[in-house]
């Protein structure tokens, strides 16, 4: 059973890599029972959207691949 601290690590890693089946199940089970961590997950999504918005505002569009096109 995941504790909350481990769950925050798991949620952050989910932003950066595909979680394995067991990892996902453990996280889902924890989230089902824990409102604090569900909120934490919402906050990570807001943060991701904010980063994207910030980047687009500053760079005038998607950063990815824009410099490599010919």
């Amino acid at each position: 059973m995941l504790n909350c601290k481990d769950a925050t690590h798991r949620m952050s890693e989910a932003e950066d890599r595909d979680l394995g089946l067991t990892e996902r199940l453990e996280l889902s089970l924890h989230l089902a029972l824990c409102r604090g961590c569900r909120n934490y997950q919402q906050h990570l999504h807001v943060l991701r959207d904010a980063c994207r918005g910030y980047r687009e505002e500053l760079t005038g569009g998607e950063a990815e691949g824009s410099g490599t096109k010919r």
């Binding site: 760079t59 005038g60 950063a63 410099g67």
Partner: peptide, 14 residues
């Protein structure tokens, strides 16, 4: 302009 901006930011990124 926006094409230029995207282009220079692409270079800057690298």
């Amino acid at each position: 302009r926006s094409a230029l901006k995207t282009w220079v930011f692409g270079i800057l990124r690298h």
